[in-house]
């Protein structure tokens, strides 16, 4: 499909004997949010670095916005938050952004910079040197750099790894705003809750190989049964989703005091742990 934001065919990277990523075949439609999940060392960062042109594939091919990876003009239309980075501590956040704005040849740079500073909540401290920033603030600056110039695709490599719970929920809200705007999001993460909440689709990698791909619902499976908390604790009842109200009604008729009801669903975490369980 010419309309894919990202299309990878058997993309692979070897570092000497280590197959960092093997045979990644993947499509991300425009406007989609893909969660790229995997334990540490699975090959997530390697995949993103190949897609933004920092690492040369040793096998396969990939296209971003219809152009081969690394295409220079296309790189003006993508944003990238690396996993590990430190900005020069002698520059202010605003200066880091101004430098990137020049590399992007942004016309109204001052406005674009204010927009992304607001987006990540760094406006008040934007004039301070990065050397005085906490790790979380540096991460926010990295996000601001990735969002500068309203890119069509944003690659986020573990965006919440340095953030506190408030920061994490801010990033989730940010990703939701990006999706609402139609921006394609490629989200690397090992935080399942995060991916489950914001992503349309998930690709699970382990030790360089894709082990599962699909919508969150497809991966977690349909709801089966219900968990109910009674006076003496949680009890499970096996039933189809449509039968849940009947089960509850019967319990009430029988005089049970019901404190809580939860559909019994495999979480993405259960599924993930099963997929990457190493023999």
């Amino acid at each position: 499909m010419p309309d894919d934001a990202i299309a990878a065919h058997a993309l692979a990277k070897r570092y000497g004997r280590i197959g960092a990523l093997q045979d990644l075949t993947l499509r991300v439609a425009r406007g989609e949010c893909l969660g790229f999940l995997g334990p540490n060392g699975a090959g997530k960062s390697t995949a993103v670095k190949m897609l933004v042109g920092l690492v040369r594939p040793t096998g396969g091919a990939a296209e971003v916005l219809g152009k081969p990876v690394g295409d220079r003009a296309t790189r003006a239309r993508i944003g990238y938050l690396p996993e590990l980075f430190r900005y020069p501590d002698w520059l202010a956040a605003r200066e880091v952004l101004a430098f990137h704005a020049r590399l992007l040849r942004l016309r109204d740079a001052a406005r674009a910079i204010d927009t992304v500073l607001d987006e990540v909540g760094l406006r008040e401290r934007a004039g301070d040197r990065v050397g005085t920033y906490s790790k979380g603030m540096q991460q926010r600056l990295g996000l601001a750099v990735a969002l500068l110039g309203a890119p069509e695709i944003v690659f986020l490599d573990e965006p919440t790894s340095a953030l506190d719970p408030v920061g994490r929920s801010d990033v989730r809200a940010l990703i939701e705003r990006l999706r609402a705007r139609g921006t394609t999001v490629f989200l690397n993460s090992h935080l399942l809750g995060e991916v489950e909440r914001v992503c349309d689709r998930v690709c699970v990698v382990d030790r360089g190989r894709v082990v599962a791909q699909g919508t969150v619902e497809a991966l977690t499976g349909a709801t089966r049964g219900v968990r109910v908390r009674l006076d003496d604790g949680w009890r499970e009842f096996d039933c189809a989703p449509a039968e849940i109200p009947d089960v509850i009604a019967r319990l009430v008729r029988e005089g049970a005091r019901i404190h809580a009801v939860e559909p019994n669903q495999t979480t993405l975490e259960d599924r993930f742990l099963a997929l990457v369980a190493h023999a």
Binding site: L54, R75, G79, Y80, P88
Partner: peptide, 17 residues
């Protein structure tokens, strides 16, 4: 330095040679 501290990553993802 900019390679060692990862600063170059976001820079080279721009339309830069």
């Amino acid at each position: 330095e900019s390679i060692a501290n990862g600063e170059i990553l976001a820079v080279l993802a721009r339309p830069v040679r």
